[in-house]
Amino acid sequence: MSDEKIYQVLFLCTGNSARSILAEGLMNHLGRGRFVAHSAGSHPAGAVNPLALQTLSQLQIASGNFRSKSWDEFAQPGALELDFVFTVCDKAAGEVCPLWPGQPMTAHWGVEDPSAVEGSDETRLRAFMDTAVILKRRIELMLALPLATLDKLSLQRELSSVGKA
């Protein structure tokens, strides 16, 4: 059994139906057990967008256990202690977030909302895949960081720059 730290990550968006769901699935897949991702929304839609689930399936990521939930679940006494919190939509980034247990590192990794794209099913699915590719690249950049050797200020700077990549 490894003594390596397992990092808890929360991805936030307003509705928790598309971008944050994609990020949760990607981080859990790419983090290979070293990172455990969760997602939530400030005003959850109550359902996960089927195109988000279809996109995850196309990327060969299990898509059966996702649900749209409130960020309040992660801010209550006794909630999971978080290491990182990332906003993936501009609207959620501008909202007043709850206080998170564990004083996690935070950064904004905003991406366009694929749910807002109109057009054919193919056009809409392409928007979801484009969003997933952007989030995947950002997660890969984060996973490549030497987390154990970076001081807090350097880590914060690096995480913020990943959101601009």
Rank of each mutant, 00 (worst) to 15 (best):
I21M: 09
I21F: 03
I21W: 02
I21N: 05
L22S: 08
E24V: 00
G25M: 03
G25N: 08
G25D: 04
G25A: 06
M27P: 04
H29Q: 14
H29V: 00
L30F: 11
L30G: 09
G31P: 07
R32V: 02
R32A: 13
G33N: 04
R34N: 11
R34A: 10
F35W: 15
V36Y: 11
A37F: 11
H38S: 13
H38D: 05
A40R: 08
A40L: 04
S42K: 06
H43I: 12
G46P: 04
G46I: 05
N49C: 04
A52R: 01
A52C: 05
A52M: 03
Q54S: 14
Q54D: 14
T55N: 12
T55M: 11
L56A: 03
Q58S: 14
Q58I: 01
L59Q: 09
L59H: 02
L59K: 11
I61G: 02
A62P: 01
A62M: 01
A62L: 02
S63F: 00
S63L: 00
S63W: 00
G64W: 00
G64R: 00
N65M: 01
R67G: 01
R67W: 00
S68M: 06
K69A: 09
S70E: 03
D72G: 06
D72R: 15
F74C: 07
F74P: 03
A75I: 04
Q76R: 15
Q76C: 05
P77N: 06
P77G: 03
G78V: 07
A79C: 07
A79W: 09
A79T: 10
A79I: 08
E81C: 08
E81D: 10
L82S: 11
D83G: 07
F84W: 11
V85E: 07
V85C: 09
F86I: 11
T87E: 07
C89A: 12
C89R: 13
D90Q: 15
D90R: 15
D90K: 15
D90W: 02
D90H: 14
K91Q: 15
K91G: 00
A93W: 02
E95G: 01
C97T: 09
C97W: 15
P98V: 11
G102C: 10
Q103V: 02
P104H: 13
M105C: 09
T106S: 13
A107C: 06
H108M: 10
H108I: 10
H108G: 05
